[in-house]
Write a protein that binds this DNA or RNA. Structure first.
Lengths: 114, 114
DNA sequence: GCTTTATATAACAATTTGCTTATATACTAG
DNA sequence: CTAGTATATAAGCAAATTGTTATATAAAGC
């Protein structure tokens, strides 16, 4: 279990930039727990499908997620081997499990069949 | 030693927003180590005095720093009792001690007599 | 082949950010 | 009181961000 990674200022701020957006922070929280296909995420968040796709593209560009095509779906999940994984996990670990927005998302997640 | 703080999505993203800027990340790194007056910081960073003042104001608004007036100087230092202190320390702990920008700053810091 | 479904990309608008220069404020020293 | 130094605030601007709608791409089912 790595706890530090000695990130450069550049890498560190790049990662914070990705997570500073509420939608992207919560999206990443979910992706660290299990994989999701885009349409599931679109149903859960109150933004358009292109908005979700654009967020996922940012993660991918930063090496934070894996993308896997299966049939007509694309599944995304957290890349646990990325350089920033410890940072991301520490940040997400600070999020209140009872945070209203997070709880609402989890409730929606259960109801979705995509 | 607290390790988690159960921050809301709002509080968490607000803090990441503050630290995602390279200048502000490094500035905060220094402020967690010792107090600085504004003019020292201005001499160390390659931005104008108002830019530094504006960054410090953001920290203060978020409760991340203390400000103390002594004579004509204002000293700033990290507020170790703020709600986000563990988060901030974890993030800054991920920064490479040998990061080029950080090393350059520390070198400058030694040379400054304000 | 055509249609539907899932997803990505492009183009654009509104907002925010991070600096700049100019100016105001406040303390210090003579 | 005046001049100098330290700092904050205001105004303005260019670049970046985050969403939108419209459109393209690609797989699946008939």
């Amino acid at each position: 279990m790595t706890e530090t990674a000695a990130l450069s200022t550049e890498k560190l701020t790049e990662t914070l930039k990705i997570l500073h957006d509420p939608t992207r922070l919560l999206l990443m929280k979910l992706l660290t727990e299990k994989e999701y296909c885009v349409c599931e995420l679109v149903d859960m968040f109150e933004v358009s499908q292109p908005a979700i796709s654009q967020h996922l593209r940012k993660y991918k560009k930063a090496g934070l997620v894996y993308e896997e095509r299966r049939g007509q779906w694309r599944y995304y999940r957290f890349n646990e081997t990325c350089e920033q994984h410890a940072l991301v996990e520490q940040i997400l670990g600070q999020l209140d499990e009872y945070d209203e927005q997070l709880v609402r998302l989890r409730t929606k997640a259960e109801a979705i069949t995509c």
